[in-house]
Computed example of a mutant assay.
Amino acid sequence: MSKNTKQTSTRIGRLASETLQNSGSSQIAKSLAASALAQRSGDKQTGAKMEDVAARVLVSGHYANDTKELAASVLSQANKQR
């Protein structure tokens, strides 16, 4: 299985950190934020479950732009063979 070596950018890392600290953030947003922060180094990639969550967030009209931005980052770091 090939490995995706992309890393979370500084800007997305900052957004993820702010999301986790915000008590008003949804559980989905916090999950995406945690996944994005876990991928700050190059040795981790998005799992199949988070891939599915991120894809659903992106096609839904019910999430804030910040949540969609986290979802896009997480999805871009998914395994390319899945």
Rank of each mutant, 00 (worst) to 15 (best):
S17M: 09
I12H: 01
T8L: 05
T67S: 08
K30E: 04
L20G: 02
L58V: 05
S9F: 03
Y63C: 05
R14P: 00
H62I: 00
S9Q: 03
L15E: 10
S31V: 01
Q77R: 15
Q77W: 05
K3A: 11
D43W: 14
T67E: 14
R40Y: 00
T46C: 13
K68V: 04
K68Y: 06
L20I: 15
S60D: 06
L32Q: 05
V53M: 02
Q45Y: 07
A38S: 15
K3N: 09
S9V: 06
V59L: 12
V74R: 02
A54Q: 03
K80G: 04
Q27F: 04
L70S: 09
A54L: 04
Q81M: 07
K30I: 03
T46H: 08
S76M: 08
Q77K: 15
Q21P: 00
T5P: 00
D66S: 12
K6V: 02
K6E: 14
G42C: 01
N79R: 15
V57F: 06
V57H: 06
M1N: 09
A55W: 01
N65L: 11
N65I: 10
D43Q: 14
N22F: 04
R56M: 10
T46W: 08
R56A: 14
S60L: 06
G47N: 15
S23W: 03
E18H: 06
A29N: 03
